[in-house]
């Protein structure tokens, strides 16, 4: 029964929802990744889209109670600007790193959002980037980047000096297809959301293949286009099973533990909005937000488009110091927080 006890402790329970959609300022607009500083400040990266106003593409700073600290960044090609921002990570000195998969560069900001520098350039040779997406720091404070259109993972120093690269295009062990999110466990092993291959791959700190988890499908333990992966202190693997619009928990050896589909409630900011716009609040109250209907092609993406509380575009995962899981949802512009069920 010990195993069961462990799994019990590992299962997730919904806590709250953070954020709301807004085109600029306080709120998110297609958030694609989030990071947290030592002090617990959240940095949420809004992808926005090509035609939107420039200041919709930004990093929003807040805490989980909805305290708002401002934004930085905008759409463009100048210093501190983005075109296709994709990943965000914070190093041990609270420097904020943002990848841009169009401009093929990494922009660095201080913790209050002042632009410091950017590095990286487009190309195929080692150290050059083609679609940098997921980004994470390892224990040595080096940065790992999913160089997605080069189908490889590259390691750099915080200053952008190339250290190492592994992976190539394909679907064999250790090969990658448009990799996206990255995670690093306590031992420094690297977990890659191998998006195009519908699986998670695990590598040693030096990039040697260790294991792969998941196969294409909608059943328990199967994955469709996973976007994010993170590993907790006990080695449990959380996967943003993006194409299935869910989060799955795997045990340290990859065995299926749990799947969650989301149960968002009103965030502080959502309450503010509904407090001012009372007609909408009233009509919302009277509506059945969980209708029982058939969805186009039985696609969970469609189900999520109809039922607002479900994950829609769960793209990135983050753990705080209390091992609570923060799930960023691109299409619902919010973060759902889960804790472990002790």
């Amino acid at each position: 029964m010990a195993t069961q006890g462990l799994e019990q402790g590992q299962s997730l329970r919904y806590v709250r929802t953070v954020g709301m959609t807004t085109m600029r300022g306080r709120g998110f607009y297609y958030p694609i990744d989030s990071a947290m500083s030592n002090s617990g400040r959240l940095y949420v990266l809004s992808r926005s889209f090509e035609r939107a106003v420039s200041d919709s593409m930004r990093v929003t700073m807040l805490n989980e109670d909805g305290e708002y600290y401002g934004v930085f960044g905008s759409a463009g090609i100048g210093d501190g600007q983005f075109r296709w921002p994709c990943g965000i990570a914070i190093n041990d000195q609270n420097r904020v790193f943002v990848t841009d998969e169009y401009l093929n560069r990494v922009s660095v900001f201080n913790e209050s959002g002042e632009f410091l520098k950017h590095w990286g350039s487009g190309g195929e040779i080692d150290g050059m980037l083609n679609g940098p997406s997921g980004i994470v720091f390892d224990q040595d404070n080096n940065v790992l980047i999913a160089d997605s259109r080069n189908h490889r993972i590259q390691k750099f120093t915080s200053d952008g000096e190339f250290l190492q690269s592994f992976g190539e295009y394909g679907n064999g062990d250790g090969c990658l297809n448009l990799p996206w999110g990255l995670g690093v466990d306590q031992q420094g092993e690297i977990f890659v959301a191998d998006w195009g291959n519908d699986r998670i791959q695990r590598f040693t700190p030096n990039g040697e293949f260790v294991a792969k988890y998941g196969s294409p499908g909608r059943q328990e333990g199967e994955l469709i286009k996973p976007a994010g992966v993170i590993v907790n202190q006990e080695g449990y693997i959380y996967v943003a099973d993006w194409g299935n619009e869910r989060v799955q928990v795997f045990g340290p050896d990859g065995e299926f533990v749990q799947k969650i589909r989301g149960q968002a409630t009103n965030s502080e900011w959502a309450e503010d909005f509904l407090g001012v716009n009372v007609e909408e609040a009233g009509a919302r109250e009277r509506a059945n937000l969980e209708p029982d209907i058939d969805y186009f092609n039985d696609d969970p993406h469609e189900e999520s488009s109809h039922i607002e509380k479900l994950f829609w575009g769960p793209v990135s995962l983050m753990l705080d110091s209390e091992s609570r899981l923060f799930i960023t949802e691109t299409n619902r512009h919010r973060i759902q927080v889960y804790e472990r069920d002790n």
Partner: peptide
């Protein structure tokens, strides 16, 4: 000219 759609960050925008 725009966008004057100031749901947030109104004063600056």
């Amino acid at each position: 000219h725009g966008s004057f759609d100031t749901h947030a960050a109104e004063l600056d925008t």
